[in-house]
Nucleic acid binder design. Structure first.
Lengths: 235, 235
DNA sequence: GAACCGCCTTGATCTGGATCAAGGATCTGC
DNA sequence: GCAGATCCTTGATCCAGATCAAGGCGGTTC
């Protein structure tokens, strides 16, 4: 363990700790433990005791809500620099699993909470991020409950285009954009609250309508962004 | 305006400001403005500038997400002592409307944010409440996306029983419990992401199965709490 | 007490998406 | 480059819940 373990951190400019000065950051770093995950590995299980919080350094995680009889819903996707975990909670409510290989910078929950309380700027930043996550969750409630399958898929493709293009996919883009879908049909279905078959059929429909081109199952080109937006249409 | 306007506040022991000492509370109070709402009146409109935050003193509010073409989803219900508003946001994302007559203690957003930053204990409390709201929203995402109509209605009845009974409706209650439904069939449908007709039919089904007794449209007795729980079943 | 209005129930019908079923494409390891 | 495992597509059928339609309560107003 080097004196300053954050030196090489790929997300040091964007994670929660980016608001700290060197001195504070070194204190926080002394509480941290790096953890490497394989794709498919689970970070925390619903029902377990809430023991850690973490910043994601690389990879993508899913946060899953499930019924006792096994129906599942992905309630959030976690990207690098995002915060994961359930502070101020004793029992984990949602299972968190790696979709790809991933790296985490973890903290024991109680120490993390104490640190938050003693470093108000970071507490405030986490508040802002949590408010953002809440807005996202509520927006997705509308999607899940009221949009049609076609609207859901079109909206997800637009979201993924924005993320894939590092925010270069502007709202009124009219140039074709090509990127790789970052998830399987199954994950899309889990995010959108539908089945694999319906996702697939909607993609086929977009292809037939020449709104997108699919080159193999995972590479997509959005040919007519405006048409896609028209099909997404949620506020 | 009295020297200490909080004296008579019905939620002073439970709202965010309950963590403040007298001195701090008086400062916050000096920023506040009381607002009285009629049932049906809207507090803030999606799309407007985010100008105020507030604590609810009495009544019940709904927070609504809507598509551009008018489909709506209630994403949250706000009860006395709860916080309302969208701090750290310039544009309101969700319309907030009173379901009953209501009273608010409002603050200009920017002053409220500054106060939060200068009073870390309250900032931390708002963080905890926001984390709770996030958990609630994510749980409801599972409900909206994966539960059947029967499961949704049973679950909502249980939630309402807990709230109506001031937390006296224990998880393993086996005594009948009677209370008034705090909302119309239409609001239940908006909360659960379904139609009025389906809510009504599910209630009729519960009545036929002698799980509940309906005395008039608004008074309900849960006769067989365990059967109701079996029908709700989400984790 | 008649007319009205908002809320609720019930019935008949329709339909979007789930479910069931059968391959076809891609990728992996050897 | 072949065997096996995933992942994806497409077709056929089914069904839960939406939609369309028609009254039935209670309350309130005058």
């Amino acid at each position: 363990m080097s004196i300053d373990a954050c030196e090489l951190c790929p997300v040091r400019e964007h994670a929660l700790c980016s608001c700290l000065n060197d001195e504070e950051r070194i204190i926080l770093s002394s509480l941290s433990q790096r953890r490497r995950l394989m794709a498919g590995e689970t970070v925390m299980w619903a029902g377990d005791e809430s023991r850690i919080c973490a910043n994601l350094q690389s990879g993508v995680l899913k946060v899953v809500a499930a019924t006792t009889d096994g129906r599942e819903q992905i309630v959030s996707l976690v990207y690098p620099a995002d915060f994961v975990g359930e502070p101020y909670t004793t029992e984990i409510a949602f299972t968190v699993t790696a979709l790809s290989d991933a790296e985490l910078c973890t903290f024991p929950r109680l120490l993390f909470e104490r640190f938050l309380e003693e470093h108000a700027r970071m507490g405030n930043l986490l508040l802002q991020r949590t408010l953002g996550a809440l807005k996202d969750a509520r927006t997705r409630m509308l999607t899940l409950a009221r949009l049609s399958a076609g609207e859901k898929v079109a909206g997800l493709l637009l979201d993924m285009a924005v993320r894939a293009g590092r925010h270069s996919y502007l709202p009124d883009q009219s140039e074709p954009v090509t990127f790789d879908l970052p998830m399987t049909r199954g994950h899309m279905a889990d995010v959108l609250g539908m089945t694999i078959e319906t996702v697939s059929r909607q993609l086929t429909k977009l292809k037939s309508a020449e709104v997108v081109v699919l080159s193999g199952a995972r590479t997509i080109t959005i040919v007519d962004g405006n048409a896609l937006k028209k099909r997404a249409m949620a506020a």
